[in-house]
C-alpha cells in the first residue's frame, strides 16, 4: 500500500475531527455542541496542523508537494479539472444557502426559577419573611401522623381537582393540557424541583402563579393560575405536603448551606 502523503493525512485529520464534532458527538453521544464552539475547535485544529507542518522546512515542502503537483504536473490534469469545478460549485452552493436562509422567530429566554420577594403573602395578608415561613402542617409528620395523613389526603384532592390537567396524573408535568403550553408545566418528579426549594417558595409560586413572576420569569407566557384567587391558604399548604409525599422528595429546609 502506498504511504499516505502528509497533505492527505492532515486532510483526513481535519475532516475526521469536523465529522466527529459536528455529527458523532451530537447524534451518538447526544450532547450537541453549538456551531460557534465547533468553529473554535476547528480553528485550534488548523493551528495545530500548521504548527506540525511548519516545524521543519523539509516537512513544509513535503506538505506542499501534492498541491504543487496537482497544480502543474501534466499527468494530474484530470484531478486539476475536477477540483477546478468542485471548489467553485461548493462555494456557490454555500453562499446561496446563506442568502436564501429564512429568519427564525426570536427565542424565549427565561429564568425558570427567579428570585422570590422578601415577604411571603397570601392575597394582601403578610404571612412572614420568605426565608422564615414554614409549612404550618409539616410538624404533624412527627407529632401526629394521623392528622398529617389527613392533610396529605386533602392535598391529593386539591391536586386532582385543580392541578393534574397540566402537571399530570403522575406529577411529571405531562397532564393532558400540557403539550399545548409554552413554557411547559413543572415536572415535580424532576429531582431538581422540589428538593431545591423551601416550602415558602413553593407557596409563593402556587399562590401568585404566572402573573406574579418577576420580569425575568416572563410572567406574560406562563399559564400557571393565581391560585390564591381559588384556593384557601390551608389548601395550598396541603397540596405542598401532597407533592412531597407523592414524589418522595423533601423540600429544602432552612439552615442548609446555599
Amino acid at each position: 500500500m502506498k504511504r499516505l502523503s502528509l497533505f492527505t493525512k492532515c486532510l483526513i485529520i481535519f475532516v475526521g475531527c469536523w465529522v466527529f464534532l459536528r455529527f458523532i458527538v451530537g447524534n451518538v453521544i447526544s450532547v450537541p455542541i453549538p456551531g460557534s464552539v465547533v468553529a473554535m475547535y476547528m480553528g485550534l485544529i488548523i493551528i495545530a496542523i500548521l504548527v506540525h507542518i511548519s516545524v521543519e522546512d523539509s516537512r513544509f515542502r513535503e506538505f506542499l508537494r501534492p498541491i504543487h503537483e496537482t497544480l502543474i504536473d501534466d499527468n494530474k490534469r484530470l484531478r486539476r479539472r475536477v477540483i477546478a469545478v468542485l471548489i467553485p460549485f461548493a462555494l456557490l452552493a454555500y453562499t446561496y444557502s446563506i442568502f436564501a436562509q429564512r429568519a427564525n422567530p426570536p427565542g424565549n429566554p427565561r429564568d425558570a426559577h427567579p428570585s422570590p420577594p422578601l415577604e411571603l403573602t397570601y392575597k394582601d395578608e403578610v404571612i412572614g419573611k420568605m426565608q422564615e415561613v414554614e409549612n404550618p402542617f409539616r410538624h404533624y409528620e412527627k407529632d401526629d401522623p394521623e392528622a398529617f395523613k389527613a392533610h396529605v389526603e386533602n392535598g391529593r384532592r386539591v391536586y386532582y381537582q385543580n392541578c393534574f390537567y397540566c402537571h399530570g396524573d403522575d406529577l411529571d408535568g405531562q397532564g393532558h393540557f400540557a403539550p399545548h403550553l409554552q413554557p411547559l408545566p413543572a415536572n415535580f418528579q424532576d429531582p431538581g424541583i422540589i428538593p431545591n426549594f423551601q416550602e415558602s417558595f413553593l407557596f409563593w409560586r402556587i399562590s401568585k402563579g404566572g402573573p406574579g413572576l418577576p420580569a425575568a420569569g416572563t410572567p406574560w407566557d406562563s399559564a400557571m393560575p393565581v391560585w390564591e384567587d381559588m384556593l384557601t391558604k390551608d389548601e395550598i399548604w396541603d397540596v405542598i405536603l401532597f407533592l412531597s409525599d407523592y414524589t418522595g422528595y423533601q423540600p429544602r429546609t432552612f439552615g442548609e448551606g446555599h
Binding site: 477540483i83 477546478a84 471548489i87 467553485p88 460549485f89 462555494l91 456557490l92 452552493a93 453562499t95 446561496y96 442568502f99 436564501a100
Partner: peptide
C-alpha cells in the same frame, strides 16, 4: 435578489484564484 448576484460572483472569483 442578492442571492442571484453574490454566490455566482464568489464562484467566479474562486475560479480566478485557482
Amino acid at each position: 435578489s442578492r442571492r442571484f448576484i453574490y454566490p455566482p460572483l464568489v464562484a467566479l472569483l474562486s475560479v480566478g484564484a485557482l
